[in-house]
Design a protein around this nucleic acid. Structure first.
Lengths: 161, 161
DNA sequence: TTATGTTTTCAATAAATTCTGAAACCATTG
DNA sequence: CAATGGTTTCAGAATTTATTGAAAACATAA
């Protein structure tokens, strides 16, 4: 019989649910939380085939989820002797998890904002009476951008478990 | 002629786009960013009717967006003499914005996780050889939860513009 | 009281996102 | 070389989320 659905144990289900809720909080899909959660609670490295079976998701969903988690460095591939399949383990240092997520999802946006502000700022000169107000507001956004950028570094330093 | 669509100026459109991108980064819908962005760049308090006209969104979307922004304390209602309509202004202190968002979206989830971990932890005893591994992992999640909780306070203290 | 202005609500619709699973691709085995 | 195991890709389907706009609700004016 083919290796189809394998049930999760109660504690596996509960821990996976914790991570499903957690990733949804930062705007990531449920399947990302499922995959990470299962790897997190697993005592040994896990193959994609096993992920598919235990979580009852498609191979496509498993593949794309693994790819995205790898891009966050939230999981890593690990070598298992005598196996052709790839095996994965969860990253379990909080600091690294946060760094990966920020680096991949937040930092590019904050950096791009810097460029866009350079482009927007000269526009205030076209607005006569409103120029002072607009300049003030854009200065505020610039300060928030700089603050966000340095905040990321602070957060990562603080999270030093 | 009815008060239908009023065009945005170039700088209004650019600033609104900045906030649309910003809110999408934290998993909120585009219309929230549009409304906040428009209030942010506006030199004076704005009515819902005006928001609807300038942003070309429905009255329902405007109403629900205003309600959600109010719940984050990202905007506040303000009195305009001689007007029956409600008028709104943007909160422009970064610290207050972050506090509102965390308080409304993040803190409740972190608090709930505390309760769920209390429920999950006793389950490890059922798993024989795996108990130590599971206990270790749940302890790690508990430490991450506590760290997240105190991190929120740190972030808000740091953001003291 | 009715009329009018304004906001809220929510079922239906539209749009966006996620997932599926088969085809394509790639690497290893025979 | 072909066969097989394993992963990636992606068009279409399914699901979820956001928006619409009319009805309902509410407050004020007449």
């Amino acid at each position: 019989m083919e290796n189809d659905n394998e049930p999760l144990t109660p504690i596996e289900a509960e821990v996976i649910n914790v991570f499903v809720r957690g990733v949804q909080l930062v705007g990531l899909p449920k399947s990302i939380g499922e995959i990470y959660g299962y790897l997190f609670i697993s005592p040994e490295p896990v193959s994609m085939d096993k992920i598919k079976s235990k979580l009852n998701i498609s191979v496509g969903s498993a593949s794309q989820g693994l790819r995205q988690l790898k891009s966050f460095r939230a999981i890593k591939a690990t070598y298992v002797a005598g196996e052709r399949k790839d095996y994965y383990v969860a990253e379990t240092e909080f600091r690294k998890l946060i760094y990966g997520f920020f680096n991949e999802e937040i930092k590019p946006q904050v950096d791009e904002l810097e460029q866009r502000l350079i482009h927007i700022k000269p526009m205030v000169d076209q607005y006569g009476d409103l120029s002072e107000h607009y300049k003030s507001r854009l200065d505020k956004v610039e300060r928030w951008r700089k603050l966000s950028s340095s905040l990321i570094g602070k957060v990562i330093t603080f999270v030093n478990i």
